[in-house]
């Protein structure tokens, strides 16, 4: 709870926060519609990565504009960074699992350049693979 003197900047921040709230909620809603409407797993994955992440970021931005305290903003920044870092990883893991277990019907993919996915065995000398020393 921070006490801010009422003034021009408070109004500006509140209006900006309201806009961010509306845009973020709209994007989240669009993500919900897309998750139900889109026909394939990968198409749904798109929805969960892009509009959902930006929607959440906008909602958190609105929160940061409303509570103007640095400790809260620091935490919110942390949430945003976590979201940006983890959402693509989760999406990649899910869609890769879908491809490898054949849950993706590849008939609908127009140019399908998947080809033969090489089982990625790294050359033992060149790369520093995920091996514990």
């Amino acid at each position: 709870m921070t006490e801010v003197d009422a003034g021009l900047w408070t109004t500006v921040a509140d209006v900006a926060a309201a806009l961010c709230l509306l845009a973020g909620a709209f994007l989240t809603f669009a993500a919900g519609v897309g998750v139900v409407r889109f026909p394939s797993l990968l198409a749904r994955m798109h929805v969960v990565t892009k509009p959902q992440v930006l929607g959440l970021v906008l909602l958190l931005l609105a929160l940061g504009l409303r509570v103007r305290s640095w400790s809260a903003v620091a935490l919110l920044l942390l949430v945003v960074v976590f979201q940006l870092a983890t959402a693509p990883v989760a999406a990649h893991l899910v869609s890769r699992a879908g491809f490898r277990t054949g849950k993706v019907d590849e008939t609908g993919l127009h140019p399908n350049e998947m080809g033969e996915v090489p089982d990625d065995d790294p050359p033992a000398s060149a790369t520093s693979g995920p091996r514990a020393p």
Partner: peptide, 26 residues
């Protein structure tokens, strides 16, 4: 996997709801 995806969105919705509530009550 579809359920995992839906769960992801559900979590995001919950986070968003909490954020909206906090923004409302400061």
């Amino acid at each position: 996997l579809d359920r995992a995806l839906g769960l992801d969105l559900l979590t995001a919705g919950l986070v968003g709801a909490i954020a909206i509530e906090a923004a409302w009550s400061r």
